[in-house]
Nucleic acid binder design. Structure first.
Length: 730
RNA sequence: GGGUGGUUAGCUCAGUUGGUAGAGCGCAUCAUUGACGUUGAUGAGGCCAGAGGUUCAAGUCCUCUACCGCCCACCA
């Protein structure tokens, strides 16, 4: 027996060494010559981020699936990469730039700024990669990808051009979610509404009373809107002009009747600001009304505000309210009003709706479906992107686990509007469109000749993420990897990005390949702290750092603690006690092995002796466990499998069997001892295999010290199967 | 407002087609110098949120209620 067993298991001394051993073995790469495949694309973490508990949980689940399927003999690929995370990364660099040098990106200029973002991303990249390794993730580093590298750029441009040529991408002037802080718009899905207390003002508007939380937008309000069936206002006619006194003097207002008005709310009358409100914009469009910009893209009031022009809205508001009060136009102020403030979920800027020209993907436009591998849409059928997203899941070709998220997904699709894909930030994939006067060019390469200017906007980061399952495999080239590993077996990710990402992957894959990107979607929950807050938020001081946990208790313990009791889709709250508990388990495995190895010798395990009934019973019992574990993992319940194996190894195998046979090893007959020794060793090797996907480090370390084993490395060992047939009955 | 998840031991949470309530940490008693610094055995502690229903049988299925959370939504 190896001397290392004389001390307790020491993850710190073991893990890096074992990871290196695996990497050098080449087993992270798919083995050739096998037909059935299993593939997962790693959801790429932000290149500038650090590993949080959510990542750690994700890596644990995926590594379990991957190691299990690899041991089952499948040709297994887990492809890693990082995401340029346009907005998040750019904001981070801008913040540092401002803090250190008091400069903005405009002071540096586009080219120089991008260079510094690139450098920052590159430097940061190694951090996240090393953290992924610490968790024991058996990803194939030789195929690592980045959402903004050259190959992925080609995929993005190819996708854009195809969609443009099919009329699915268009440029249009719409009301968009403008973030004045970041100087870019964001898509509807990137809006996070926060409940905020704010005063709500009731203002006299001629004969009417209107309500607003934003008096600073009201300068241009010259339409007063009410419901056509509101009897209170039946004496006013649509189109009627009314002269009245307003903020900066007398104006003429026009009465508009529109069903969008809620009669129950307030007085049932409102004025509209079409340039800065989505609902108002729709009303204005319906009645062909004038629109006028009140606030510029930096949050500064325009000349229409008269004496307030040039002021920031934040400063102007109290002054405007003062003026309104002095003029006797304020009738009431509700100081305790709650409104849903729209903020940018990345970066937190307060959204100011603005009308702006942007690029969109049309999700409703019909087009002819080509190369269909989607069961529910026939080749050459007329379809739309929305229909692709719906039918692939509705037909069951893609299965979302747990099932309840399918309903949420459908609900989202049904109210989905065109996807705004352009951003005014600099870091990201530049829109592959060039202009020269009236001419326009859309393509992969910069057009020949002078005078072409590229569109300044970049693409929504989820555009490139949407291609991830196949751009990482070499698409648009028809590579062997692409043919072999796509569609991928399962997409394992958090439910919080079901819309952002999962839906967009289905859209992109469906349109570009006529195929699904993955067969299953496994959604894991959020890791919560003791207060029930998401641990992935970097500003959360209660967060448990996964690296600190691996440092203190070992990666195997961290993995176990993130798996047990975490069914798909359920949030888990993690405590340090739980991690510690599983560290003890790793040591228990260590000591079981120590006990067994000190009680056998090579000659007693090489040849199967005649087995007594007790040992046969235990061998049958572990076969039952093997079947249970396999079934649980096959059904995407690693949480149950982990709990089951934990319980069996500790409280059955160790507490019962080993305790039972201890006296027999002392005083029993030679025949009995032979049977026991062989059984102990056999069960140990099976247990190590069963435990390996969950606790890869400690099991591999023990495996390396086994005198007799059917594979040099545990990572490549064969998953146990038909034990009774192979052992007991022969 | 619509949808959705939760409510189980002192704490944090599991409980897969309905069949005698489980884990980690904590607690009590005993054993143990040991394969185990991290051990074992035994035990205390649960009207499984509340009410009704289906069933031979409900933590589990159905209906309603309460509270907590999350997602969605154009109430200015």
């Amino acid at each position: 027996m190896d001397d290392k067993f004389l001390k307790p298991y020491n993850p710190k001394e073991t893990e890096d060494k074992i990871y290196k051993l695996w990497e050098e073995s080449g087993f992270f790469q798919p083995q050739t010559g096998k037909s059935e495949t299993f593939s997962i694309s790693l959801p790429p973490p932000n290149v500038t981020g650090t590993l949080h508990m959510g990542h750690a949980a994700m890596l644990a689940v995926e590594d379990i699936l991957v190691r299990y399927n690899r041991m089952k003999g499948k040709r297994t690929l887990w492809l890693p990469g990082t995401d340029h995370a346009a907005i998040a990364t750019q904001s981070k660099v801008e913040e540092v730039l401002y803090r250190k040098e008091k400069k903005t990106r405009h002071d540096l200029g586009r080219e120089e700024f991008l260079k510094s973002v690139g450098e920052y991303a590159e430097k940061s990249h190694d951090t996240i990669v090393n953290q992924i390794k610490k968790m024991g993730a058996s990803v194939d580093w030789s195929r690592e990808a980045f959402t903004l590298d050259e190959k992925r750029s080609l995929a993005v441009k190819t996708a854009f051009k195809r969609m443009y040529d099919d009329g699915l991408i268009y440029r249009g002037e719409r009301i968009v979610n403008w973030d004045p802080k970041m100087q870019s718009n964001v898509s509807d899905d990137e809006i996070e509404r926060k409940e905020t207390k704010a005063p709500f003002y009731y203002l006299k508007y001629g004969p009417f009373e209107i309500g607003t939380a934003r008096p600073e937008t009201k300068f241009g309000d010259k339409y007063v809107v009410m419901h056509p069936r509101d009897s209170r206002y039946s004496k006013y006619e649509h189109g009627q002009k009314i002269d009245l006194e307003w903020i900066n003097g007398p104006i003429t207002a026009t009465v508009i009747k529109d069903e969008a008005v809620n009669m129950e709310f307030g007085t049932g009358v409102m004025t509209i600001t079409p340039w800065h409100d989505a609902t108002d914009f729709e009303i204005a469009k319906r009645h062909n009304l004038d629109t006028e910009q009140i606030i510029d893209f930096g949050g500064i009031l325009l000349p229409i505000a008269d004496e307030f022009k040039g002021m920031h809205i934040k400063k102007a508001r109290p002054l405007i309210v003062d003026k309104l009060k002095k003029k006797g136009l304020v009738t009431k102020i509700d100081e305790d009003y709650t409104l849903n403030l729209a903020t940018n979920y990345r970066g937190g800027g307060i959204i100011e709706p603005q009308i702006k020209e942007q690029w969109f993907i049309d999700v409703n436009k019909k087009f002819k479906f080509k190369n269909s591998k989607i069961e529910s849409i026939k080749n050459e059928d007329e379809t739309s992107l929305k229909e692709i997203m719906r039918k692939t899941v509705d037909s069951g070709q893609i299965e979302i686990i747990p099932k309840r998220f399918e309903k949420i997904y459908f609900h989202w699709i049904d109210r989905l509007c065109d996807w705004n894909i352009s951003r005014q930030i600099w870091y990201g994939h530049r829109i592959p469109v060039w202009y020269k006067g009236e001419e326009k060019y859309i393509g992969i390469e910069t057009p020949e000749g002078d005078g072409w200017k590229q569109d300044p906007d970049t693409l929504d980061t989820w555009f490139s993420s949407g291609l991830w399952t196949f751009s990482t495999l070499g698409w648009p080239e028809e590579t062997d990897d692409f043919k072999t590993f796509h569609p991928t077996s399962v997409m394992e990710t958090g439910y919080d990005i079901l819309f952002f990402w999962v839906a967009r992957m289905i859209l992109m894959s469906g349109y570009l390949l006529g195929d699904i990107p993955f067969k299953k979607v496994y959604l894991h929950g959020m890791v919560l702290d003791a207060k029930g807050k998401k641990m992935s938020k970097s500003d959360d001081k209660n967060a448990i750092d996964p690296l600190e946990m691996t440092e203190k208790y070992g990666a195997d313990a961290a993995r176990f603690s993130l798996i047990v009791g975490a069914p798909p889709g359920n949030d888990i709250s993690l405590s340090e006690d739980k991690v510690r508990g599983y560290k003890y388990f790793a040591n228990k495995i260590w000591n079981i092995s120590r006990f067994i190895l000190s009680n056998i010798d090579e000659s007693t395990i090489k040849q199967k002796p005649e087995l007594n009934e007790r040992d046969k019973k235990w061998l049958k019992d572990i076969e039952r466990i093997v079947e249970k574990i396999s079934k649980d993992i096959d059904e995407y319940r690693p949480d149950l499998a982990a709990d089951e194996i934990y319980h069996w190894v500790w409280h059955h195998f160790a507490d019962k069997y080993i305790e039972e046979i201890k006296p027999v090893l002392e005083n029993g007959s030679e025949k009995e001892k032979l049977s026991i020794r062989w059984t102990l060793y056999t069960i140990l090797t099976i247990c190590l295999k069963l435990l390996h996907p969950f606790a890869p480090f400690v099991t591999e370390e023990i495996w390396q010290s086994l005198p007799e084993r059917d594979s040099k490395m545990l990572i490549a060992a064969k998953w146990p199967n038909n034990i009774i047939k192979d052992i007991v009955d022969s």
